[in-house]
């Protein structure tokens, strides 16, 4: 589903990704962990080209999106993204947040898209908030709306960039529960996270990133229990 080949990314002289090569299969849930500054978020943002790719390939369903000539907007419709800071549209109601992109991109009739949005709100447990504005929601609610918004485009892949890092601890579980449901339904997911519990329970594979490279990858058991690298051990001992 996603093939990454020698992915490099630099910001000026600062090399953030130093040649990542990996593959993510359909329906797989990959959790990306690692210290801050290791390039986790940048890696994720290269998967829908929110960051320009310096060199290497990111092949999604057979198309190399690093190629500047591909219509990136078309591919982004298949790749949903959830941000650490939600990034809901504050001037739009919850329902409008969800339907804006599908409407503007001609994904269906208004009534049909509204109905679909209500179903998504049911799924994230926020049907009663359809007419509310983002400013009146808690962080956890905002993030669940953001997930519903991304799902409204019927993506094949969902990217999560530290989706629970900005939440109060007691609100984290609601968001993780929604993500878990999504994983159980067979969504292909790449999740940058500090929630080791989630990574262990829901992740099919875990990537440990350090200094711009995927240093270690394997099943949660491989990475958390039979840790190979010293750097991984060091990181896990600090965080667990």
């Amino acid at each position: 589903m996603i093939k990454v080949n020698e992915l490099h990314k630099s910001f000026g002289d600062n090399q953030v990704l130093k040649g990542i090569t990996t593959e993510i299969k359909a329906k797989e849930v990959v959790c990306v962990i690692g210290p801050s500054g290791s390039g986790k978020s940048t890696f994720l943002r290269c998967l829908n080209r929110l960051e320009d790719i310096t060199s290497g390939e990111v092949i999604i369903d057979g198309t190399n999106i690093a190629d500047k000539s591909v219509n990136i907007n078309r591919y982004r419709q298949d790749v949903g993204m959830v941000f650490q800071h939600f990034n809901l549209f504050p001037h739009k109601s919850v329902l409008e947040n969800i339907t804006l992109a599908p409407k503007k991109l001609g994904k269906g009739q208004k009534a049909e898209l509204n109905e679909k949005a209500m179903q998504l709100l049911d799924k994230v447990g926020l049907r009663e908030k359809a007419q509310a504005y983002p400013s009146s929601l808690s962080g956890g609610q905002k993030q669940r709306v953001a997930i519903a918004r991304a799902l409204a485009m019927n993506p094949k892949i969902m990217l999560f960039d530290e989706p629970t890092s900005a939440l109060d601890p007691e609100l984290v579980d609601d968001v993780l529960a929604v993500m878990k449901d999504l994983a159980n339904e067979g969504m292909t997911m790449v999740v940058v996270t500090h929630e080791m519990g989630f990574a262990k329970e829901v992740g099919d594979r875990v990537f440990f990133m350090d200094e711009g490279l995927v240093l270690e990858e394997g099943t949660p058991e491989d990475v958390f229990t039979n840790t190979k690298h010293e750097r991984t051990q060091e990181f896990l001992s600090k965080i667990l």
Binding site: N48, L50, N73, R74, R76, Q77, V79, G80, M81, F83, H85, N87, L88, F89, L100, A101, K104, L105, A146, R149, A150, M153
Partner: peptide, 17 residues
Amino acid sequence: DKGQMEAGRSLGLNSRQ
């Protein structure tokens, strides 16, 4: 906030939209 542009772009809207 630049996150607004990123959110729009990540949904598949082009920069003009």
